[in-house]
């Protein structure tokens, strides 16, 4: 998968990290590189998936070790700002991500920070909302949106910055089937590398082309999904669904 002539998009080298209040480090001497595919990141609750994403974009600072973006080490605050502008992160709770009073203001926040004028930022916001077919929501007050709508707008706020990478932290959490399918279709159509944290195998099988499992602070890569026997309920009546076996 990894192209040797090209530096990985995001990389951790020998990163050790621990939260202060906990004695045991979450990661010790961890190496991770993200080549730029659609990578599913799986692991149990509390295994450090979100921590890993936050380390990649400098929201958390490694105790030792370095973060690299497109082969360049992230050292100064300027590097950090540059990195964060290029990486779009969709947070677990959309309410945390949508902090402006109206949808328009929220989607325009990123473009304004990138230096666009008010007029350009509005145009960008409208364009992205149209892409996601959410243009009718432009005047809406953010906190009155439903969970699914909030998730779509959260995605819009990130896409408005034209990111090189998307980091999705449990994007389908709490979504009903309709909202989930809508998000899935939208994400499938995007040609942006992404790392997807999810417990939702259905989503991962349709979206990801490689997997990383996180267990006890160690990463295990597998590029294809393994054959597995499984049982699950189909509460909405019988319907066929594909499993991508290799």
């Amino acid at each position: 998968m990894q192209n040797p002539t090209q530096a990985p998009l995001l990389e951790l080298r020998k990163v050790t990290f621990s939260y202060e209040q906990r004695a045991k480090p979450v990661f010790e001497q961890l190496d991770f590189s993200f080549p730029g595919n659609r990578m599913g990141l799986i692991g149990d609750n509390g295994s450090g998936k979100t921590t890993l994403l936050h380390l990649l974009v400098g929201l958390l600072k490694p105790t030792t070790g370095m973060v690299y973006f497109q082969g360049n080490p992230i050292q100064s605050d300027t590097d950090l700002v540059q990195l964060r502008r290029s990486v779009g992160m969709v947070f677990q709770q959309a309410d945390d991500q949508l902090f402006c009073p109206t949808v328009l203001e929220d989607v325009a926040f990123g473009p304004l920070n990138l230096g666009q004028t008010s007029r350009q930022a509005k145009a960008t916001a409208l364009e992205v909302l149209q892409l996601l077919r959410m243009e009718n929501y432009i005047e809406r007050i953010t906190h009155t949106l439903s969970g699914g709508e909030k998730r779509m707008i959260a995605l819009a706020t990130v896409l408005a910055m034209n990111p090189k990478v998307l980091l999705l932290d449990e994007p389908t959490n709490d979504l009903d089937r309709t909202a989930k399918n809508r998000l899935l279709t939208t994400l499938q159509a995007l040609e942006i590398p992404m790392i997807i944290i999810s417990h939702d195998w259905d989503l991962l099988s349709k979206l990801a082309d490689g997997y990383v499992a996180l267990e006890n602070g160690k990463l295990t890569f597998s590029e294809q999904m393994e054959i597995h026997n499984h049982k699950h309920a189909h509460p909405m009546g019988s319907h066929t669904h594909e499993h991508q076996h290799c």
Partner: peptide, 14 residues
């Protein structure tokens, strides 16, 4: 979330 969208202390407004 604000940092991830390029916030540097100044709140831009439309």
């Amino acid at each position: 979330a604000m940092l991830m969208r390029g916030f540097t202390g100044i709140y831009p407004m439309l």
